[in-house]
Amino acid sequence: MNRSCSHPALAQPPSFSPREFRDALGMFATGVTIVTARNAAGKLVGLTASSFNSVSLEPPLVLWSLAHGASTMPVFANGSHYAIHVLAADQKALAQRFATRGIDRWAGLEHRPGIHGAPLLAGAAATFECFNRSRHQEGDHIIFVGEVERCAHRQGVPPLLYHGGKFYTEHPL
């Protein structure tokens, strides 16, 4: 017997507040990343992001997202390359620095240019140098899909984690 399911054409309105949604999302522990690039004039930009995930092994794809209103949106939306840094457990101060508005995030910071000029930060647990393959508008964010052209990682370096509004480091069970 073949039964068809009827699906609603639209999602139901949320039964929760934005704060409740944010608090529920905070229960998902994530790694912490910094995404960096250069604008057309060569100025360095970067931000802390926890919305990072793998997409595909073949081709090698990763994703991350950025709010529409972010001051760095034009650089990432129009640029061809960026670098994603998975932070090491000892880089909490760096995560906070790149999450702070109104400061020079690059002052005195050690970095070097990647294969397409995106700055690479010293000390990260892993780095992914990406071609800006596609962008997808969803809600109040743009989802960036990067095609990884080069990656590296440091063996045995514990990552920086974020859960419930606090930073953690890993502790094997």
Rank of each mutant, 00 (worst) to 15 (best):
N2T: 11
N2H: 11
R3C: 06
R3F: 02
S6Q: 10
H7S: 11
P8A: 12
P8S: 03
Q12C: 13
P13H: 04
P14S: 05
S15T: 11
S17H: 06
P18E: 03
P18I: 02
E20T: 06
F21R: 07
F21W: 10
R22Q: 13
D23Q: 12
A24I: 07
L25R: 00
L25P: 00
L25C: 15
G26K: 00
A29T: 13
T30H: 04
G31Q: 03
G31A: 05
I34N: 06
I34W: 06
T36L: 01
T36P: 10
A37G: 12
R38L: 15
R38A: 06
N39G: 09
A40D: 11
A41M: 04
A41S: 15
G42F: 07
G42N: 10
K43F: 12
K43D: 15
K43E: 15
K43L: 10
L47F: 05
L47P: 04
T48R: 02
S50M: 13
S51E: 02
S51M: 10
N53S: 15
N53H: 08
S54W: 00
S54R: 07
V55T: 07
S56E: 05
P59F: 06
W64I: 03
W64M: 05
L66N: 09
A67L: 09
A67P: 05
A67W: 03
G69C: 04
A70H: 10
A70C: 13
S71G: 11
T72W: 01
M73S: 04
M73R: 09
P74V: 10
V75S: 02
V75N: 09
V75I: 11
A77N: 04
A77T: 01
N78S: 15
H81M: 07
H81K: 09
H81D: 09
Y82L: 14
Y82W: 15
A83C: 15
A83L: 07
I84G: 02
H85S: 01
V86S: 01
L87I: 01
A89N: 08
D90P: 13
D90F: 01
A93H: 03
R97A: 08
A99W: 09
A99F: 07
G102S: 11
I103Q: 01
D104Q: 06
R105A: 14
R105L: 04
R105T: 09
W106I: 05
A107V: 06
L109C: 05
R112N: 05
P113N: 05
G114F: 02
G114W: 02
I115T: 09
I115C: 11
G117C: 05
P119N: 13
L120S: 00
G123Y: 04
E129K: 07
E129M: 03
C130S: 08
C130H: 02
C130L: 06
F131W: 13
N132E: 04
R133H: 12
S134V: 10
S134H: 08
S134D: 13
H136L: 15
Q137P: 09
E138D: 06
G139C: 08
D140K: 02
H141K: 08
H141F: 13
I142K: 04
I142E: 08
I142A: 07
F144S: 07
V145P: 02
G146K: 15
G146T: 12
G146C: 15
E149V: 00
R150G: 12
C151F: 13
C151W: 08
A152P: 00
H153L: 14
R154L: 14
L161T: 03
L161S: 00
Y162R: 04
Y162G: 04
G164K: 03
K166C: 13
T169C: 13
H171F: 07
H171E: 14
P172Y: 01
L173T: 00
